[in-house]
Computed example of a mutant assay.
Amino acid sequence: MKPVVSGRPDWAVGTCIGREWSRSVLTDRVRAAIRHRVDLVEFDPVSEAVRDDIRVLITGWGTPPLTGDVLDRLPALELVLHAAGSVRGIVTGAVWARGVRVSTAASANAVSVADFTYAQVHLSLKNVWRLALDARAAGGPVPRTGVRGVDGATIGLVGLGHIGRLVARRLAEHDLRVLAYDPFARPDEAAGLGVELAGLPAVIGGSDVLTLHAPHNDATHHMISTAELDLMPPHSTLLNTARGGLVDHDALVEFLTRRRDVFAVLDVTEPEELPAGHPLFRLGNALVTPHIAGSLGTDEARLGDLAAAELVRFLEGDPLEHEVNEDRLALSA
């Protein structure tokens, strides 16, 4: 059925974002904008009866997987608008099997991750975290040592997807060399970003800061383990804002204990959260943050804005700008 082009639709948009995020992502302003065009209703995917009036479902953090049982209660569903990052946690095979289209606000979330990464690159090259932790441990001032500086540094990107490209664009503003490992990246695209493609060992071994932006799947699970960590140059930094499973944490603890000159900044871990007392919380050359790189606080509203804009395109019969398919999903973070 072709989306309504004019007039008010006789169907509804459902939303089933978790309570913690339902108002910060779908703000009053966004809700009003949607209701101006089409009815907006709450949908409980666990206990709701059949809703044959919902053709579009807005999902996000806190939405359970869209299994066959859930979809049975949404027989008219045509489109899922995911107002968060990756759709991997909610999109099941049943979604694709029933021909339901999927769009994600991952590109809006990527902006926050790229900004966080960009900031951490600068802080790492200034040796900020090590000096701060050393001062805390000493209970007083420490020598101003280990400051590499930004100009002339080499940054390594593992993954040149949406976030990796955003990071590369931010880094292009500085006198930096950027290396990248991504077996799916096109050489012309990398060249346009000012990025040099290389094999993983060369990227790891040549980078003052190595930052991870790859998807986590069978092929990338623990892609950074003992052999790879041993390639890291003296006084370099490992930064992970992607997925904890990319890094073998047992190997990382052993490596950081042995190589005190290397620092690790981990915004994602395996498992997430790490148990209390984990060695990474105690090491003087590691910093663990609680998965804050993505959209949080007021940044969450941009996810709802993107979903609302995508809904307008659907209503007008225009192509969606952020649609994903099953094949593309396998390559996303």
Rank of each mutant, 00 (worst) to 15 (best):
S6G: 02
P9V: 02
I17W: 01
R19L: 15
V25F: 00
L26G: 04
A33D: 15
R35W: 07
L40Y: 00
V41G: 03
D44Q: 04
S47Q: 06
I54S: 06
P64E: 05
T67A: 08
T67Y: 08
T67E: 14
G68C: 11
R73T: 08
L74H: 03
A76H: 05
V87F: 01
G89R: 13
I90Q: 00
T92D: 09
V95K: 06
A97F: 08
G99W: 01
V102W: 00
T104D: 08
T104P: 07
T104F: 07
A110L: 02
A110S: 15
S112T: 07
W129L: 11
A132E: 04
G139I: 04
T145R: 13
T145N: 07
G146S: 05
V147P: 00
G149V: 12
D151L: 12
A153D: 10
I155D: 03
H162L: 07
I163C: 08
A168C: 10
L176R: 10
L176Q: 09
L179W: 11
D188F: 04
A190S: 13
A190V: 04
L197G: 10
A198N: 02
L200V: 09
A202E: 15
I204V: 15
L212F: 11
T220S: 14
M223P: 11
D230Y: 06
P233I: 10
H235F: 15
T237C: 15
H249A: 14
H249W: 10
A251F: 08
L252V: 07
V253C: 13
E254T: 14
T269G: 01
H278P: 00
F281H: 15
G284K: 01
N285H: 09
A286M: 05
P290C: 05
T298W: 09
D299W: 07
L306G: 06
L306I: 12
A308N: 07
E316A: 15
G317K: 07
G317W: 10
L320V: 09
E321S: 08
H322N: 15
E323D: 13
N325V: 08
D327C: 06
S332F: 13
